[in-house]
Amino acid sequence: MPYEERTLAQSAYGDIRAMIVDGDLPPGTKLIVRLLSERLGLSATPIKSALAALERDGFLIAIPHRGFHVPLIGPADMREIYELRELLDGIAARKVAVSPDPAGFVRTVLDPLLTKQRERGDDGDLASLRDLDVEFHRAVWRASGNERLTQVTDNLSGQIRLAWSGRPSGGVPRTLREHEAIMDAIAAGDPARAERVSRAHVRHSAAAYEKAVSRRR
């Protein structure tokens, strides 16, 4: 694929992924190339490439003779997703804790994010809080230095947001306490504790999802 087409396809991928994750294209929606082309101001070629990539990454399903649809991510899917997130988040936190300056990373990157999270929590701005939650974890993934881990966890995180339909995954006070615990462990340069509290954080989010699903039954 020529560079320009690849760049346009990447742009379309990001825009359509955001529509899916943010709930603008809810589960069950059929994606029409012509409508997406009009909405994004792009030709059909990058749109089709983006849809194929989104299907590979788990954000769409391809139904024979019916095209691409936004999937319904159910409890069984979420158990698999959270299982992977627990392992990968633990690995990322462990790696960051043994990086050259973990305390500096916490002070300059994570601490400002936690401050913003507290402010948005006090304001009741759950949409911004959700975005900051992803930004917090993405910062840890990237700081691990493992590009593949970052890519996989980012996709898993997007699928979690799709399944939660925009609701924060778990109680705000608990989330903030656990983020602080992750920061403390990383800043202390304690890889075992950083991995342990990071994995526990993901398990608690998984439990919150299971509880929310059981209430809807």
Rank of each mutant, 00 (worst) to 15 (best):
P2W: 09
R6F: 07
T7D: 14
Y13E: 11
R17Q: 13
V21P: 03
P26C: 03
K30F: 10
I32L: 14
V33S: 09
R34S: 10
L35I: 09
L40D: 08
A44D: 15
T45I: 07
S49F: 08
A52K: 10
L54P: 02
D57Q: 06
D57I: 00
L60I: 03
I63N: 04
R66H: 08
H69N: 04
G74R: 08
P75R: 12
A76S: 11
I81M: 05
Y82E: 10
E83G: 14
E83H: 10
L84P: 01
L84R: 14
L88W: 07
D89Q: 08
G90I: 04
A92P: 01
A92M: 00
A92K: 00
A92Y: 01
A93C: 05
R94W: 03
K95E: 08
K95L: 04
K95S: 04
V96G: 05
S99Y: 02
P100I: 00
A103M: 01
G104C: 03
F105K: 06
T108K: 14
D111V: 04
P112F: 11
P112Y: 12
L113P: 03
T115A: 15
T115W: 14
R118P: 06
R118D: 13
E119G: 07
D122N: 12
D122S: 14
L126H: 15
A127P: 07
L132G: 14
H137S: 13
H137Q: 15
G145S: 11
N146H: 15
V152L: 15
N155W: 09
N155V: 00
S157L: 08
Q159K: 11
Q159E: 09
R161D: 10
A163I: 00
A163D: 01
P168Y: 08
G170F: 03
G170R: 07
G170I: 01
P173K: 06
T175R: 15
T175Q: 12
E178I: 06
H179A: 12
E180S: 11
D184Y: 04
A185C: 05
G189L: 02
D190V: 01
A192P: 01
R196C: 03
R199W: 06
R203E: 13
R203T: 05
H204I: 07
A207C: 04
A207Y: 12
A212L: 07
S214K: 10
R217W: 05
